[in-house]
Design a protein around this nucleic acid. Structure first.
Lengths: 196, 196
DNA sequence: CCTACCGATCGGTAGG
DNA sequence: CCTACCGATCGGTAGG
């Protein structure tokens, strides 16, 4: 009878994914049941399977999309002629932006990837390791060109990625600081922390 | 018959907690069953209940202990006459040390606290908020005394705590860098990033 | 999209 | 410490 009118022009599957991301983030992937998800959407649990293949598939698609967003951005920045320190700043800014705009899905990609099934789990871990290696390589280039302090590249990458990941918690305390100030302050701390 | 000889002189409950921490960290709290835990210990699931009250209780005790470890350290440092920047460095070092030595339990306290039941959940969130407020206050003191750059105190606290939390992943890549180098490099990046 | 239902597994208890 | 077992809930399927 009272059908829910879709507000966005995405598919129903996209809507399910978005709501699932919110629930997975709030309650954790394992603690979120398909019945929780169905209720949040307004259907019975079995109806979900007309749009998705399985619970795991939702997580897979989220992790995949996020991973490729970061990889695409990195490739784009790598192809530029920017000084190393600016590349690092741009990468940092992209992470912050993603964390501000799409934080639920980025959070899942950061913290719930361990629930991925094979072979997606291995693929994801490879992409992740590869991404971090490429970042570390950029840092070492910067150290060599004297743009970056002689700090261990692994530590630089770990610190930057962890710091931006923490922005997840900012969404619960938005009154404290606005998105733009958050971005500029964090970029300043991190980039000045590594700039020689 | 073949009893397992306890190697440490802690109670059986302590042993259960330690193994539970490892499993909760690896598989997630919700995805770890009491049967998984029992198997890892070498007993049947119902036997666990001779030593613990419930699954939730294990997580509660872990989060409680870790939270109080950080609070105790903060109070100790607060009572000292150290310059502000040194206080911040000492706090950062304590976080790094905890993350290196007791990372499984610190990880749980960082990432699985949402599975705490009430009233522990509310208590924990209060402790957490309070701790961060105190840190932010120290940062603002440092800004006022011109020891610290004029960076938003919320962002400084968020960045430091997130960065040290990321050390969790270092335990899977220990060959890359040893604990001492990790510590000194991260302290340098973070503290030089905020020192005026 | 629904109702009806499946086998598996969950945290935990009873009782010895 | 165990065996036996509980009601609840899980992800998912059958069939319409």
């Amino acid at each position: 009878m009272a059908k829910i009118i879709p507000l966005k022009n995405g598919t129903k599957k996209d809507a399910i994914t978005a709501i699932a991301a919110r629930l997975f983030k709030e309650k954790g992937y394992s603690a979120t049941s398909m019945r929780d998800l169905a209720e949040a959407i307004g259907v019975e649990a079995p109806s979900l399977y007309n749009h998705i293949g399985s619970k795991k598939e939702i997580l897979q698609e989220i992790c995949n999309r996020i991973a490729h967003a970061f990889i695409t951005n990195l490739n784009h920045i790598q192809g530029s002629e920017d000084p190393i320190i600016l590349k690092l700043e741009k990468i940092t800014r992209f992470h912050i932006k993603m964390m501000i705009e799409d934080y639920e899905q980025v959070y899942l990609s950061d913290h719930e990837w361990k629930h991925l099934g094979e072979p997606f789990l291995s693929d994801f871990k490879n992409l992740r390791r590869n991404y971090r290696s490429q970042l570390a390589l950029i840092v070492r280039e910067g150290v060599k060109s004297l743009e970056v302090k002689d700090i261990d590249s692994y530590v630089v990458v770990l610190t930057i990625l962890s710091a931006v990941g923490g922005i997840e918690s900012w969404h619960r305390s938005k009154k404290t600081i606005d998105a733009n100030s958050l971005t500029e302050n964090m970029v300043r701390l991190l980039i000045e922390g590594i700039r020689r």
